[in-house]
């Protein structure tokens, strides 16, 4: 079991190193809302169907798009496209919209805006200070709680293992080119850290229980 754990942590270190190399040379793969792209806005005089607009947008700009309603009346939509868009795509989109809704819209009726890339540091910076504060308090707690079974050594071990496993998760995200999504990439990382922390603390609680039992004997 101890060997298995060692292997697991070595794998984690290797994944982190590999992730760092991939990050250095290829960067991260941001999701549509975080990457550089275009926002194509189209306005109608009446309510339309988001699903139809999505279908037409996918036919024209490809699968890598996201459609959101503008305001609340189903009469305006913003299509976020990950890549640059060509004049041909714009023309195709307008002609398909005209065909679907029997309109006479022109390319000029589209509002196209450049969407800048989200800076990686902006995505994680709000997590840094509270995570560091929490980590310091947790470290002090672990030192006090597991004083009898190893004091600082146990605390360092727990924090290090949490870092390794969470780091490996982010490494996998970078290596597999999974898109970095605001909604879950970092929160899932925190969930993994929490599960690891619970597992390690539970193991230490058992050790402490046995230590206390031994002492009583």
């Amino acid at each position: 079991m101890k060997n298995l754990n060692k292997i697991l942590y070595i794998i984690c270190i290797l994944i982190i190193i590999a992730g760092a190399i991939v990050l250095k040379f290829l960067g991260t793969n941001y999701s549509i809302e975080n990457t550089k792209g275009k926002s194509v806005e189209i306005y109608f005089d009446y309510s339309t169907n988001k699903n139809d607009i999505t279908a037409i947008a996918k036919e024209t700009f490809g699968e890598n798009i996201k459609v959101s309603e503008i305001e609340r009346f189903n009469d305006a939509f913003a299509i976020f496209v990950k890549d640059d868009i060509t004049d041909e795509q714009k023309n195709n989109f307008i002609s398909k919209i005209n065909e679907k809704y029997s309109l006479e819209k022109k390319v000029d009726d589209l509002t196209i805006t450049d969407i800048p890339k989200m800076q990686g540091k902006d995505l994680v910076k709000s997590y840094i200070t509270p995570s560091l504060i929490a980590m310091v308090i947790i470290f002090i707690y672990l030192c006090i709680r597991y004083f009898k079974i190893g004091n600082v050594k146990v605390a360092v071990e727990v924090i290090l293992k949490v870092f390794l496993i969470t780091g490996a998760y982010f490494g996998i995200v970078v290596i597999t080119r999974l898109p970095i999504v605001n909604m879950y990439t970092v929160p899932v990382g925190i969930l993994i850290a929490i599960i690891t922390l619970i597992t390690l603390c539970y193991k230490n609680e058992i050790k402490l229980k046995e230590f206390n039992k031994e002492k009583k004997k």
Partner: peptide
């Protein structure tokens, strides 16, 4: 066990 989570 869950006290560190409570700290977070």
């Amino acid at each position: 066990t869950i006290f560190p989570i409570f700290i977070i």
